[in-house]
Structures are given as C-alpha cells and as structure tokens.
Computed example of a mutant assay.
Amino acid sequence: MLYDNHGRKINYVRLAVTDRCNLRCYYCMPENGIVYMKRKDLLSFEEMERLMRIFSELGISKLRITGGEPFVRKGIMEFLEKMSAIPKIEQIHITTNGSFTKDYVRQLENLNVHSINLSLDSLDRQRFLDITRRDMFDTVMETFHELLKSSIRVKINMVVMEGRNIDDIRPMLELTRDHDVSVRFIEEMPFNGSGGNPTFWPMKKILDYVRQQYPDIEKLPDPEASTSQNYQIPGYTGSFGIIAAYTRTFCGTCNRIRITPQGTLKTCLYDNGGLSFRDILRSGASDEEIAQTLIKAMGRRYKDGFEAEKDRGASSPVSESMATIGG
C-alpha cells in the first residue's frame, strides 16, 4: 500500500483526461473560456494507461476520470475499456456535465463503471443557462434520467452560489424523495480562472439552510475518507451530502492525488503542482523509476489544503480554472 508522510493511505487517483469543456460555468472559468493546452502537451491515452498500471501496483484501486469534460476527448470510450481491464483498479468513477454522456450510458454500465457524478447546479432552465452560459439543460436532464435507468450509482454535484442557485437547494433535495441518488452541495472555490469566491457559502451555512427546510434530517455514517458529510431526509429514498471544499475539514483523511491533463501530479487540490509525470514518461524512465518517483512525492505531502495554499506564496495565488486541474 501507498502511504504519505502523515500516515494517510493513498488509494485514489483523479485523472483529468482533458482541459477542454463545452460549458462555461461561472465558478470554473471566465465567459470567454481559458487558453487550452496544445494536444502535444497533454498526456496521451497510452501514457495515462501506463501511469495507471504502475500506480495500481502501488495500491491505487480507485480511479476517477475527470476533465474539463471527459467526453469531449476523442477515444474516451476505448480508454475507459482499457482502464476497466487493469486488474487492480477496483472502481472507476466519472465526473461529467452530462452534455455528451447519454448515448454512452449502456456502454458505461457494461464496463462496470461504479458511479457517475453529474455536475448540475440548477433544476431551473434559466438559472442553468445563467450559470453554464450554454443552453443545454434538456440534454443534461435526459442524461440524468437515462442514468437512473441504469445500474450505475448516480450523484449530483451542485456548487452552492449566493445570488445564483440558492433557490435550487430544496428542489435538489426533492430529487432524493423518489430517486436513489446522492445530491452533494459543494462549497464554491476560487478555481474559476480569475481567483476569489465572493459568493461563498460555508458548509455550516448550507446545512443550516437545509435544516430550516427539513428540521428532522438524519446524519448518516460517512464512508472512510469521505469528502462529504452525509444526511438523509426521513422517508426519502436518496441522500445528500455537503462537501467542505473551501473550508477543507476533510484533509486529515485525504486518500487522493490528482493527475492534471498535462501530467502534473497534485498531491493536494490547493498545491501549485511541479512534478511532471509527462516529462518523466517522455524521458524514457522505467516503470520502477516512475513508481519510486510517486513514492518519494508521497513522502513530502502537505498536511492539508491550507498548508499547500500558503506554500504557493503571494506571487502564485489560487486562481487557475478547475478545468486545468481536474474537477
């Protein structure tokens, strides 16, 4: 097994396969988008496969595919087939905005994809348009209903934003009345391509708001290394959780690392990166050298997101788009 210098077991990789996205969500990137990386600067699928095979031999058993929007990258289904064939990868999860996912649901089910996190910040067509700057609400909802017909576990990720989608909190919770879904309310972060999160609602404020609507909510046990604190409304089929992505209350049990689209290792969402597995791969390094590089990196991992952000310094504040990191 792979452990960091704080004794935390690392068994989960979030792999961003592209920085490109067809939406322009307010909390992720500016309206005119970001400067995308050149194709040659991205990891190839072959390089990603090699990394994941090496990492799996070190104890990585859970893989989340992210972007950008992963389904905009050509060849994604063939890549997922290869990931599902790695013996020691026990779970594959995907985070998607749902705009290109509907036609792949049956294939994903056949690949035994464990869960899909659907980024959906509003159930109101106009608010969806205002947040994403794209008119794709119907398409995303079609994907949602197609997923409900499958055996894939469905989660909805909603970033909570003052003045934009607070009125969606109750409708989102009502989705859990009859559907076995998990709605997760996420604290807004400054990874929006410009920095700052003036509309930030902390976890406590979100929970207090929910309790005003549903005073008798029940606390559920949180899975090991869970990023969310989880609850259920009595009598409802599904559940909901709150992810303290900005107040960072879950760092002490963090079991995950990230690989960005260009192959940079991020041992914490808030760190500045620096170790390029792309360059190491392309230098001709052996599998053993790559494995040892990851082991050494785990020996100097930040204690938490605050320490990682502080180490960036004033000259490099958190401001990059989440699409360049991997959502």
Rank of each mutant, 00 (worst) to 15 (best):
P234N: 00
E109C: 09
L118P: 09
F128T: 09
I242G: 01
K40I: 07
G235H: 07
L175Q: 10
F200H: 15
L42K: 02
G263S: 10
G68N: 06
G163F: 11
T176E: 05
S194E: 13
E57A: 14
I65P: 03
C28D: 03
A16W: 03
F55R: 06
M52H: 00
L63S: 04
L63Y: 07
K82H: 11
M136L: 15
G68S: 07
N11M: 00
L148Q: 15
S151W: 01
Y3M: 11
C268A: 09
A308M: 09
E162I: 00
P223R: 14
H93S: 15
S321D: 08
M161S: 10
S44C: 12
W201A: 01
I243L: 06
S56L: 09
K219L: 02
G68C: 05
R39H: 13
L111H: 11
F200Q: 09
I259T: 10
E109W: 05
N255F: 04
I233V: 09
V183Q: 03
P261I: 04
G263A: 08
R278M: 08
L294W: 06
C251E: 03
R50Q: 12
S84C: 04
C251R: 04
P70I: 04
I257T: 07
Y27L: 11
R125C: 13
R177A: 06
T66N: 13
N97E: 12
G163H: 14
F306T: 02
H145V: 03
F144K: 04
R106F: 06
K296T: 13
M83E: 12
A285C: 12
K82I: 09
R53Q: 14
D19V: 00
F200S: 10
L51H: 11
L43I: 10
G284C: 12
I217P: 04
S61R: 15
S226N: 07
I206T: 04
Y27W: 05
N5T: 00
D135I: 03
G241Q: 03
E187N: 12
Q126S: 15
Q212V: 00
F185T: 05
V160H: 02
G252A: 04
F71E: 01
L129P: 03
M83H: 11
D178K: 13
I257Y: 06
L80P: 03
K102Y: 10
V159L: 02
F306N: 10
S44A: 12
V35D: 13
S119I: 05
L43Q: 10
M161W: 07
T18Y: 08
S44F: 03
C251Q: 06
I217H: 01
H114E: 14
P198E: 15
E218Y: 01
I131H: 10
T267S: 13
D222C: 03
E162Q: 15
T18H: 08
T267H: 02
G241T: 04
K74N: 10
A323I: 06
P87C: 06
T18G: 12
P223Q: 09
V154C: 13
R282C: 09
M141F: 07
G98W: 13
N5H: 07
L51G: 11
G273P: 06
L80Y: 04
G284A: 11
G163A: 14
M189Q: 05
Q212I: 00
R258K: 07
E309C: 05
I152T: 06
I152K: 01
K102Q: 14
F191I: 01
I325N: 08
S99W: 00
I169W: 01
M189H: 06
R282D: 11
S276C: 06
P70H: 09
F128H: 15
T95A: 11
D271M: 10
